[in-house]
Write a protein that binds this DNA or RNA. Structure first.
Lengths: 108, 108
DNA sequence: CCCTTTTACGTTCCCCGTAACTATC
DNA sequence: GATAGTTACGGGGAACGTAAAAGGG
């Protein structure tokens, strides 16, 4: 359940290959194997079936793919909001609220 | 940008105290200080202002809180989908699709 | 002085790369 | 024997707890 594992998972799902994901993300192949193994262990089910031709998503893997993509997009959006600092709030107390002024993005 | 940092962040935001968050999450206070320090460093801005009375959200901290909560909820939903295995898909090739059968939940 | 957070330090465990192995074609 | 993935192993760094210190009422 770590971000880098999620990125590896999506990359493999898209390319169908672990070594391609490794190159894309700047890791060695064993590192990718390890990351996916950790992710599968923490989730309790297999994400890919391994073949000589590459790695293919299982039903479970395909099931969580959209949520994983959503997590990564949210994380990217959390990283962004630097640069524009004009009308920011000064300080505030403990927050119990639910809906709040979503992350500020450069483009919007 | 790790899950445990996010949980610490939300817990502090809700309680207004680092030591309360530490107790709630089962860590020592220094561990919480360390986690928030790491998170602030990786984000590039402060999340809390520290006072003798506790820790209070900065404007930036308040800004990302909803997205952080969303990430945690998504992660919980990714962990859940075990237990119901009746109509699951067998296997499939590389997935380039965008919208897919969201994570199956016990309640819905 | 009390309360909350931070710094210091040592230990443990995680994550990665290199190297060697296995499996399928 | 080529390609894709896995296992083995050692090193560097991350994350924690205990202990001690610092900052404000």
């Amino acid at each position: 359940m770590h971000e880098r594992e999620f990125r590896a998972f999506v990359s493999i799902a898209e390319t169908g290959r672990m070594d391609a994901a490794a190159r894309q993300l700047g890791y060695s192949q064993p590192a990718i194997t390890y990351q996916i193994k950790c992710l599968e262990r923490s989730l309790g089910f297999k994400l890919f079936t391994r073949h000589p031709s590459g790695a293919r998503l299982t039903g479970d893997g395909r099931m969580i793919l959209p949520s994983v993509r959503a997590v990564l997009m949210l994380m990217d959006s959390i990283r962004e909001p630097q640069g524009d600092r004009s009308g920011e709030l000064p300080d505030e107390g403990a927050a119990g609220g639910t809906t709040l002024p979503l992350v500020r993005r450069r483009t919007a």
